[in-house]
Design a protein around this nucleic acid. Structure first.
Lengths: 192, 192
DNA sequence: ATAAAAAGTGACACTTGTGTCACCTTTATG
DNA sequence: CATAAAGGTGACACAAGTGTCACTTTTTAT
């Protein structure tokens, strides 16, 4: 019964991601997105009540993709294998950290759906956190991870490292190896 | 000949910093700043032609403070002392990294002064970079820093580590020690 | 074939933020 | 002591983004 969409939801979310990263949360708006997609602004309102709803829907979409990948960490039994897998996965999903960092800018009172979405995001975040905490716990148990450092610092440290800007455009595989080395053993030689 | 300011430039910049961090670059505006300072919006236009000019002036102010501190690194001759000093200094100026990250959002065509300010910021940034690169070079020479990792990755890594959010409010001195340990030796034990 | 659902549109009224102006206030100095 | 420079203000016209509505187009199930 329905007419075909001019723009698929995937394409819409992809463009949303690009514009959010390019202009920041408050620089992003319906006018900009509609222009970029060559549709009218009013068309967007057929699918989302407002910007907050669109962005939180988008975030849930991204977070689900990310979590689906993270969950596969359970296919690996020892810490070293988990570390390799996790690092590669998070490198592929680099942008999600910056995207999720925008959550605090969302005006959540705007509507019921937005409130519910933010709640859902919180849950997904906690879900993710549980997997990662389990990973850290295993590392500490196997004596592979520095035991006296808090889980929060360790996880924040990993996440943050993917946001290091590669201004000089070092080739991805090389960049990847360097970041992994830094996260693993730090910047100082072991003669310290 | 001049009337006293209701608000000092320092207070103005301090409030600017708070609001920029709270609302992001595009969420920050003259209306918000004027309200927060209990002055009229028109008063702000007496001192700054527009938001871009205000923000870039503010950034130069912050960058100069930061650079003044960084320069003192030359009071220390060996790498370990420089590292300790640099780490402490950068920890005290945590926010500057996030602030400077907003530069790419500034619409630089808006006016001559803004263009000049951005140029100045670029120079200050390069200045800072030179000090830090010298620091890294010394570290590599003293065999204290991993030699095969690029200066860009090393410096990005240090900067980024100060942006790790301390959501669980671990006391600053403890947090500081953990981050320093992670940056120094990474998250894995040396048995790797 | 047609009715109903979903997708899309331009236009309108509204809100928020901008930049400027005429005008008032304070204060140091000739 | 008056005057000019700098600080401050409310008001106005303008620009950009929002949300809604009446209306059109496409599609498919009956």
């Amino acid at each position: 019964m329905a007419r075909e969409r001019k723009v698929t939801r995937e394409k819409l979310y992809e463009t949303t991601k690009t514009l959010l990263l390019q202009h920041g949360y408050n620089g992003f708006n319906f006018t900009l997105l509609a222009k970029q997609l060559n549709i009218s602004r009013a068309a967007l309102y057929k699918h989302f009540k407002n910007k907050e709803e669109l962005v939180t829907d988008f975030m849930i979409f991204e977070m689900n993709k990310f979590l689906a990948a993270i969950r596969k960490i359970e296919n690996y039994t020892n810490f070293d294998a988990q570390f390799d897998y996790l690092f590669a996965t998070m490198f592929q999903h680099k942008e999600i950290h910056e995207i999720l960092g925008m959550t605090y800018l969302i005006y959540s009172k705007s509507n019921k759906k937005v409130k519910a979405n933010i709640e859902k995001l919180k849950n997904l975040h906690e879900d993710m956190y549980r997997y990662l905490q389990k990973f850290i716990k295993l590392g500490k148990k196997e004596n592979r991870v520095a035991p006296h450092i808090s889980d929060e610092a360790l996880l924040g440290f990993i996440f943050q490292s993917f946001s290091i800007p590669n201004h000089f455009h070092i080739p991805p595989s090389e960049w990847y190896a360097q970041i992994k080395e830094l996260v693993s053993h730090g910047m100082l030689t072991n003669m310290s």
